[in-house]
């Protein structure tokens, strides 16, 4: 048994060495940079290197690399207001657009690579994600959780940074004629913020709408295929899978002042809605400022 195991290990190691040797120098430097950032984030890993929710920094490091390349060289993200982030628990609330959740990836990358101290963002995902093979593993290892109120509350109580997009599918799959119009917000995030006394950080993202402007959304057909939406963009489905590649619009991510709300998480919808409206307005202001400062969609 042993020699076989050794040989297998040897082959895998040889393969990964082979790949690592051929990666451009710059990529290896990025990898080292990510590792250094991840090492600064406090965590609760067990002896096997996993946190109680399946996050693994070793895996995360590999996921962040393509994200960081996109962040620096494709979307050329520009951040402002990172210094306003509170320490400890926070609920990042952002606008959602662009058909595929690159906005989520860029926001997480910003918090890991640019915030001081670096933070690992815990995304709250849709129910169907853990049902997809491989996506399910990547989902858990990168620190995401199914967005149940229980999971979200537990994360905030652990003083994590939780990211939510209260527009959900309504936001991400809207067509371009509604670009930068905030869709209806769910109320769950506000209830959780009140219950866990977590500050809300409004985030306005500009650029996500132009990465894949939606021309139409064949929602019904999409549902038949088991998808939450089926957007038509200038490149998809025209160019097939290549059409999924986002356009290199320049991203601008603006963080607002943290908002502290007081109240009862189990209040009636009307009471919650008025608070949600304040968050919505804060995000709107950030987006407007970002749009006003933007000179070109691609040049930023």
């Amino acid at each position: 048994m042993e020699p076989v195991a050794e040989k297998r290990g040897g082959i895998t190691r040889a393969l990964s060495d082979f790949v690592a040797d051929r990666l451009p120098m710059a990529t290896r430097e990025l990898q080292a940079e990510i590792e250094a950032k991840l090492a600064q984030v406090p965590n609760q890993l067990n002896e096997f290197g996993y946190d109680p929710f399946g996050l693994s920094p070793d895996w995360l490091c590999k996921f962040v690399l393509p994200g960081l390349i996109l962040y620096r060289h494709w979307f050329r993200c520009r951040c402002d207001g990172l210094e306003k982030l509170p320490a400890g628990r926070m609920l990042l609330v952002a606008n959602h657009a662009g058909q595929l959740p690159f906005d989520a990836a860029m926001l997480s990358t910003a918090l890991l690579m640019e915030a001081e101290p670096p933070r690992i963002v815990r995304p709250m995902g849709e129910y169907f994600l853990p049902r997809l093979p491989f996506v399910s593993i990547a989902f858990a290892r990168s620190g995401a959780l199914v967005g149940t109120p229980g999971n979200c509350a537990r994360m905030l109580e652990n003083d994590e940074a939780v990211m939510v997009f209260p527009e959900g599918v309504r936001g991400i799959s809207k067509t371009y004629d509604h670009a930068y119009e905030l869709q209806r917000f769910g109320l769950g995030f506000m209830r959780l913020a009140l219950e866990t006394r977590a500050p809300i950080v409004p985030v306005g993202i500009v650029g996500s709408e132009e990465q894949a402007p939606g021309l139409a959304n064949l929602e019904r057909l999409g549902r038949r295929l088991g998808l939450p939406a089926l957007p038509i963009t200038p490149t998809f489905p025209l160019l097939g899978p290549l059409g999924l590649i986002p356009l290199p619009a320049r991203y601008r991510i603006s963080f607002g002042e943290p908002l502290y709300f007081e109240g009862d998480g189990s209040d009636e919808d009307e009471a919650i809605e008025s608070k949600v409206e304040l968050v919505k307005r804060a995000i709107e202001a950030l987006i407007e400022r970002g749009l006003a400062e933007r000179r070109g969609i691609f040049s930023g």
């Binding site: 109680p52 929710f53 129910y127 169907f128 853990p130 049902r131 399910s136 959780l145 199914v146 149940t148 229980g150 999971n151 537990r154």
Partner: peptide
């Protein structure tokens, strides 16, 4: 502990 069932929408813990 298996009486709760294994589902994708299970909260943790």
């Amino acid at each position: 502990g298996s009486v709760y069932g294994a589902f994708s929408e299970n909260p943790y813990y």
